[in-house]
Design a protein around this nucleic acid. Sequence first.
DNA 1: TTCTTTCTTAGAACTATTCTAAACTGTTGA
DNA 2: TCAACAGTTTAGAATAGTTCTAAGAAAGAA
Lengths: 139, 139
Amino acid sequence: MGKIAKDNGKAVSRLRTAGLRPTRQRVELASVLFKGHDRHVTAESLHEEVVSLGLKISLATVYNTLHQFTRAGLLRQVIVDAARGYFDTNTGDHQHFFLEEEGALIDIPGEDISVSGVPVPPAGLTVDRVDVVVRVKRA
Amino acid sequence: MGKIAKDNGKAVSRLRTAGLRPTRQRVELASVLFKGHDRHVTAESLHEEVVSLGLKISLATVYNTLHQFTRAGLLRQVIVDAARGYFDTNTGDHQHFFLEEEGALIDIPGEDISVSGVPVPPAGLTVDRVDVVVRVKRA
DNA sequence: TTCTTTCTTAGAACTATTCTAAACTGTTGA
DNA sequence: TCAACAGTTTAGAATAGTTCTAAGAAAGAA
């Protein structure tokens, strides 16, 4: 029985339930990710973390695994950083539909959509803006 | 007087008002961007467009100019594509504060925040999910 | 076990973007 | 009008994050 086997039971069944073969790497990553409270990681930050724990997992595997976990519903990807910059000539108050398959944007007028209940930000911070992206797919 | 001088008067004054020196490249890009209805462009799509119009502007200048225009409030950047993948172990209904200066994420519980008035998507499309990002800055 | 399929890996490749440093241009003021 | 200077543009190199490739390794089935 391995050193970190105690948490692995949970991780293994979580993976099985998700339809993912519980390989060593996936089990170790799942154990680290789902051990305690909720968290936000990048591929790189997670890779550094597992390496510093003495686990042998390549960066490519971390990338693959994060995407597999996301596809399986175990994780969710949060988009805050622009890979491809889209620039909008409409600077007024409005939001967007994003057609994932085509990479196209469609404006939603600001009068139509509204966001309520945005909590007061943590101390010392002010809201710069609120972005809403409605991701749509072929039905 | 140049060939496309007719629209350039508007572009020049728009640039002057924004505090940007009206160079040939900026004037041409502004003319293309703000000629008709609102639009969404990427640096690459805009570069292709101006090149196909016979204008001589480098891709680097298109990038610079789009950012200058954005800083000046003439454009707005829409973030829909992940440059750096952030993955969240919380897959439940919730949204995020994004601390731009630090690149950190903080959850906003789904019960707190709500988006109303999302229009019916264009025909043949269904809403996949609605992402809200509250961008915060040091006060 | 043995077979088959799936997974992992190092390193190369890729993509969008930014940087560099030299040449060029718009503006100002004499 | 034009010299001087600060700001701008450019090609190409560099960068960062991510994905691809192809070959070996490991999991599960029989």
